[in-house]
């Protein structure tokens, strides 16, 4: 049994040390947002936040997570009470099939936590590890800009370090 802190809660997880975080999140904790896209660190669909940084959960084994805080999209907000980044993606209708979107949102969230006013160029550079096949890129960029504006409105700050819910 390993202890894993996800979205502010501690979980006892029965997974071997080499199990990638992605499978623990999906299989043991029944969380949906982090997606399996390639398992090779090439597409970004599995991105979550660990200690404030965006990481590819498909290539991060449990052994690296001791004492660290994991935040997934579920930890940011809900349909009823969406976090700014979630509101922004809803308001911009920034999805087609939407499969890649949670990963994009987590990387954007990590960016906005350390840089509340990123330039368009910075957002593009940050999202470089992420693939979208539907071609929703223009909306994704708009949504990240919108999220930056929403976060800027003082109290809108979300559970930055995974303490939501």
């Amino acid at each position: 049994m390993t202890t894993l802190k996800v979205n502010g809660r501690e979980h006892q997880v029965d997974a071997e040390a080499d199990t990638p975080l992605l499978h623990v999140l999906r299989d043991d904790l029944k969380l949906n947002a982090a997606k399996y896209g390639c398992g090779l660190g090439q597409c970004g669909s599995c991105t979550v936040i660990v200690d404030g940084k965006a990481v590819l959960s498909c290539v991060v084994p449990m052994v690296l997570l001791e004492g660290k805080q994991v935040t997934t999209l579920e930890g940011l907000g809900t349909i009823a009470e969406p976090a700014p980044i979630q509101r922004a993606f809803m308001e911009e209708q920034a999805a087609q099939c939407g499969y890649c979107i949670p990963g994009m949102m987590m990387r954007a969230q990590a960016l906005l936590q350390k840089n509340s006013k990123p330039t368009d160029e910075q957002i593009r550079a940050e999202l470089e590890p992420h693939l979208c096949r539907c071609g929703t890129h223009m909306r994704i960029l708009r949504a990240v800009h919108r999220a930056a504006r929403l976060m800027d409105t003082a109290d809108a700050l979300p559970a930055a370090n995974g303490s939501a819910r």
Partner: peptide, 10 residues
């Protein structure tokens, strides 16, 4: 979209 951006079963 709401479920897709909040980690719902989608």
């Amino acid at each position: 979209i709401p479920a897709k951006v909040t980690g719902g079963e989608a």
